[in-house]
Design a protein around this nucleic acid. Sequence first.
DNA 1: ATCAAATTGCGATCACCGTTCGCAGTAATT
DNA 2: AATTACTGCGAACGGTGATCGCAATTTGAT
Lengths: 243, 243
Amino acid sequence: MPEPERPPLSIWQRPERAGRGPAPEHSRASIAAAGLAVADAEGLAAITMRRVATAIGTAPASLYRYVANRDELTALMADAALSEMPLTDLPTDAGWRADVLTLAERLRALYRRHPWLLDLMMRPGPAMLGPAAVDYLEGGVAALSELDAPARTKLEAVSVLTGMVSMFVKDELGAGNVSEQAQAANAAYLGSIVAAGNHPHLAAVMMQAAADPTAGGAPDPGQIFKRLVVGVMSGLLAPPALP
Amino acid sequence: MPEPERPPLSIWQRPERAGRGPAPEHSRASIAAAGLAVADAEGLAAITMRRVATAIGTAPASLYRYVANRDELTALMADAALSEMPLTDLPTDAGWRADVLTLAERLRALYRRHPWLLDLMMRPGPAMLGPAAVDYLEGGVAALSELDAPARTKLEAVSVLTGMVSMFVKDELGAGNVSEQAQAANAAYLGSIVAAGNHPHLAAVMMQAAADPTAGGAPDPGQIFKRLVVGVMSGLLAPPALP
DNA sequence: ATCAAATTGCGATCACCGTTCGCAGTAATT
DNA sequence: AATTACTGCGAACGGTGATCGCAATTTGAT
């Protein structure tokens, strides 16, 4: 029997080094760090096999000795970035809402520091949890430890929280990356659609938003973020108002 | 003054046809439909300029007469797919929770019918709303019309709902696309990490999930979906429990 | 000590991608 | 009739992820 054709394991289960040939000149960690630096400086589009290879001083083909394909390279980078998030100080004694908010705000800060990480997290494929992702999950469940909700519910809540933060920052950064002209053009476009008469509810909303009774300018994103996080998590985890 | 170098408008504001030359042999709608069919049959990776061009029977370069780049092509496709969602029957008199749940379930069904649409919605760039996206927004706000929350709050709620549904289906489809072997390998990997002793909360959660008192197998995703949607939206929109 | 096996770095190369350019043909405007 | 602006598109460019085979190197077994 000539080997039953083993399926290739994910990079997290494959050993980094096999003990036979010459010692590799690089490590997964150093490659991830190099990619992280390139992505921070030039964006995710700059993460090509050639670019990262030259960043660590090798030929492109050599990278494939450490990584099966580009997706594995980005997975390494994502886990490296995730590992920057502090987690060991949770839970505090300030209550689960405060702890969850802390976690959410740290994730938002991480996304804003490494915008490319957000793009990676949004990628279609199945989520292959690296060590840092597992730590993050542990931190999230830990923040909810004072609650006695079912285990599945807590996992779902952490998942929803993560997704919500990701979507929030995606909108936040996406909106920030358009020129003032384009933004004005888009507003005009939306206005022209609403002016056509269908979309009455949208028209009402835009009217109300324009004639806002509170402060004049745009509301503080941080404030909105807080409200959303607390609202969503309360809806998922707070007891449904016992009498 | 030689023209002030106009910035190029988005595809939704550009007229489809200028009135001078020969009549175009195709339309944005027909191109979007062709792309939609290709993506349904072969996935988003099959959406290349060449592939779509041959699908409508032209040379690759001709596509650029209709679309400035690949992103505009996918935007066309996304809006075409979104327009499949029925919206005119909302709100009903069953209450905003039921209506919002209906909307969410329709979006989930749409994502499952066109998995590539989900990938497009997750793309980094700023959201350029096409006509169907505006209709969707109108439908979402309409479903909340019986509430007297501030306009901004309603928009936020629709946005969060959309994001939550997207994330949910992403996880759902992502998990479905891994072989049973890979799933088992992943479980083993996670188990080995948890067995190392750190991650006590995760260990507890996995233990509790394994020895589940309720039904044996996996819980119904549809049920979870319902619970999450109602929970999240209640947390954002329900009054905070007055005494 | 010797040798076979396994592994590393990598030059060369493949197929494919998005996009551009210029040209011939065509229809509306002047 | 002349001009103008558009259409379709053949050909090409620079860049991409990935593969293959080879020489060099180190380990483990004999």
